[in-house]
């Protein structure tokens, strides 16, 4: 009888452990399902295509790009930053710097940051809002 009780308890423990594992597995699977991450594309450190020699050897460019790369790949991933724009503010700043230069590019990027809050979509035109509820700044720039 004593053995039977021990066996029963062992069985119960195993079962509960199994149940626990099942619950954990279900929890894990529901928590870690493939998310719609907007940062799926590998972010380039720098694109030096069509840049002049001076631009290529400019140390400021490497410092700036390095800081942005660190932010995008380490900090942004950790804080799960979710930008209100289709092209995130950091990516937009990088592209603006590439296109317009360090001064105008930085100012444009910072300016977008001022408008990067959840309610900003209500102040923009309907056609600029994409299906994810984000502002399509790519189209905005094209226009």
């Amino acid at each position: 009888m004593k053995y039977l009780t021990v066996f029963f308890l062992f069985f119960l423990l195993c079962f509960s452990a199994h149940c626990q594992n099942g619950v954990n597995a279900a929890l894990l699977s529901s928590t870690f399902t493939e998310s719609k991450d907007t940062h799926t594309h590998p972010r380039k450190f720098l694109s030096l295509k069509d840049k002049s020699f001076v631009a290529k050897v400019n140390p400021l460019l490497y410092v700036g790009a390095g800081l942005m790369y660190f932010y995008q790949n380490v900090i942004s991933e950790q804080i799960q930053a979710d930008c209100g724009y289709q092209m995130s503010c950091s990516e937009f700043t990088k592209k603006s710097i590439e296109k317009k230069g360090i001064v105008k590019g930085t100012l444009k990027g910072l300016n977008q940051l001022y408008s990067c809050f959840p309610g900003s979509i209500y102040e923009r035109s309907e056609y600029l809002i994409n299906s994810d509820g984000k502002i399509n700044n790519v189209l905005d720039e094209e226009n």
Binding site: K104, T106, L107, K108, G109, L110, N111, Y114
Partner: peptide, 8 residues
Amino acid sequence: MYSANIYG
């Protein structure tokens, strides 16, 4: 920040 606000 101030310059970005004016330019923006």
